[in-house]
């Protein structure tokens, strides 16, 4: 991936300071695949403890937002900040330069992610999945890691399945383990990428229930991509509608869903409502 040479990084602050530093900031972020521009100059702030849901038609770039934040995708221009510090870049001699692997690992430790297809490690038990990161990355002892993991497995209602391999768990159960695995790293930001899309309808509530509990009881910052408008309305502080790589409209659930200003938002919402 080539960085745009003409792209001037000096306009971006080395770090975010002041009273209202957002937990996540996308500043003028562009992402292209070849000639296709997936995200076009995205600006988005997510405050600490805020739950932001991203909706929009497929191909509108919503998943890419999460994947860039998890550093699964590189960006072509702009800067992403996490907790005030640049994620995609780092400071070198008073200037921002592209982040190296060590910097990425450092900042990435603040972020956790759950995937559409769970991506549990199939050769490890539910407990094994949850202690892997804490032991290998955070350097916890096995006992500490297991204590932490069991607490979280209990939180997602999977403590009794701790010794099962993923192949023996239903989709909903796997996703709950995946949430515990991500939480075990004690992230400040959690990303949920269409976590209910691969689930059978009757188990969706297992997973949404867990997420709802997180929203109620923890001060986690969360970004979620979903097709479940009803669920988004219930738990989001803010909903962003993406269209063609841009935020078409955003606001509180009531504002955006009940009183959309924009014609494309209205069209999208009525299409979704009809499908439900």
């Amino acid at each position: 991936m080539k960085h745009d040479k003409r792209h001037d990084l000096s306009q971006y602050p080395l770090r975010l300071e002041g009273d209202n530093v957002p937990m996540v900031r996308f500043q003028n972020v562009t992402k292209r695949y070849g000639s296709l521009t997936v995200l076009d100059g995205l600006n988005l702030d997510v405050a600490e403890g805020e739950m932001v849901t991203i909706i929009g038609p497929s191909g509108s770039g919503k998943t890419t937002v999460l994947r860039m934040l998890m550093t699964l995708e590189t960006i072509d221009s702009g800067v992403i900040y996490v907790d005030g510090e640049p994620l995609t870049h780092m400071e070198k001699n008073g200037r921002l330069v592209r982040a190296n692997a060590a910097h990425l690992r450092l900042i990435r430790s603040k972020i956790g992610m759950c995937f559409q297809h769970f991506n549990l490690f199939p050769h490890m038990t539910a407990l094994g999945n949850c202690i892997e990161g804490p032991m290998q990355v955070l350097g916890l002892s096995k006992q500490e890691a297991e204590e932490r993991a069991l607490e979280l497995l209990d939180l997602v209602g999977m403590a009794d399945k701790r010794d099962q391999h993923p192949s023996r768990l239903s989709g909903g159960q796997q996703q709950r383990v995946a949430i515990a695995r991500a939480l075990a790293m004690r992230p400040k930001v959690m990303l949920f990428d269409e976590v209910t899309s691969a689930l059978d309808p009757e188990v969706i509530s297992e997973v949404t229930g867990v997420i709802r509990g997180l929203v109620d009881q923890h001060n986690l910052t969360m970004l979620m991509v979903t097709h479940q408008i009803g669920f988004a309305r219930e738990i989001s502080d803010r909903i962003c509608l993406f269209f063609d790589g841009k935020i078409e409209e955003q606001g509180s659930p009531e504002m955006l869903l009940d009183n959309p200003q924009n014609e494309r938002t209205q069209q999208f919402l009525s299409a979704v409502l009809e499908a439900n």
């Binding site: 550093t71 956790g112 490690f121 892997e132 990355v137 075990a184």
Partner: peptide, 23 residues
Amino acid sequence: VPKGQWEAARAINLSTVTTYRRI
């Protein structure tokens, strides 16, 4: 090995060597 395994390993911040060795 599915791409999702690499991504999940990245998401819990495993190093490349650990990802190869453990996952």
